[in-house]
């Protein structure tokens, strides 16, 4: 059994799926983030002034990019894997000799690919509004890669448990989006009262956004090492949990 071929098959299928429906997958984040940059960055940002010695526009760019990466990595896997379950063509994979880890790697890689593609689109749009030269491009790319991996895995788990289309929109709408907005995309946590600063530190997305911001503009509210430890820890836990679910056949086998 050639697992590489099986992996490439799943990955290619996923990439073809979201590029085929680009008006649903790639165009909306371009429009939404243009509006963010225009309204929050250009119009309101001019009145806010500087945060951590950078313009408000420069301050929000990393968070807006990473927020798009998070939501699209997650959305790609949750919608694709749930549709696969819903239309029952998951059976093609279950019958075949593809190991569970290859199934997981294929879907998660598809989510990462979409996250990175959307991130690139948003980053390109941001250049229309500001001229950011990355402080540490390697670090920024690594953070994006880790973050998209983490949320692609989370999307996979959501899809495994989901038993309706409502169930795949609950977590993005009621957990992911609030945590992203409260993760310091549009503000620095240092601006919050002390109690809210402490509460914010419980939000894992805060660490990722700040690590990415550090890579792009050299500014962060959190310890970068801690950001890597938290993100890596979540990735490892979610990989093992996903493989456990696949092994047990939760949500996909009778």
């Amino acid at each position: 059994m050639n697992n590489w071929i099986a992996f490439i098959t799943i990955f290619t299928k996923e990439v073809r799926r979201f590029t085929r429906i680009w008006p649903q997958t790639l165009l909306p984040p371009a429009i939404t983030t243009s509006l963010y940059f225009l309204i929050f960055g250009t119009l309101i940002g001019q009145r806010i002034g500087k945060i951590h010695d950078v313009s408000y526009m420069e301050f929000i760019v990393p968070g807006v990019i990473l927020m798009s990466v998070i939501s699209h990595s997650y959305a790609n896997v949750v919608s694709s894997f749930y549709s696969t379950k819903f239309q029952k063509h998951i059976e093609e994979l279950l019958i075949s000799p593809v190991p569970n880890w290859v199934i997981l790697a294929g879907y998660v890689s598809g989510g990462i690919a979409r996250g990175l593609m959307v991130g690139s689109v948003v980053a390109g749009i941001s250049l229309l509004f500001t001229n950011i030269l990355p402080e540490n491009l390697g670090l920024a790319l690594f953070v994006v890669l880790m973050t998209s991996t983490l949320f692609a895995l989370a999307g996979f788990i959501n899809a495994v448990f989901a038993d309706s289309f409502d169930a795949i929109s609950i977590i993005p709408n009621f957990i992911l989006t609030p945590l992203s907005y409260l993760g310091g995309v549009f503000y620095s946590v240092s601006m919050l009262p002390e109690i809210w600063q402490k509460i914010s530190m419980l939000n894992p997305i805060l660490y990722m956004i700040n690590a990415f911001r550090y890579g792009l503009i050299g500014v962060s509210d959190v310890d970068i090492q801690m950001a890597f430890i938290i993100t890596s820890g979540f990735i490892v836990v979610l990989i093992f949990f996903s493989l456990f679910l696949l092994h047990k056949g939760v949500g996909i086998k009778n």
Partner: peptide, 30 residues
């Protein structure tokens, strides 16, 4: 094993050839 199930269970948004090529890919066929 090859299975022909009771219910239609292939991806109805894919072309006929892609359905077969993907299936072959899952079995590691170049």
């Amino acid at each position: 094993i090859g299975l022909v199930p009771q219910e239609i269970n292939f991806n109805q948004f894919e072309t006929v050839q892609d359905i077969l090529l993907n299936q072959a890919g899952y079995y590691g066929i170049p």
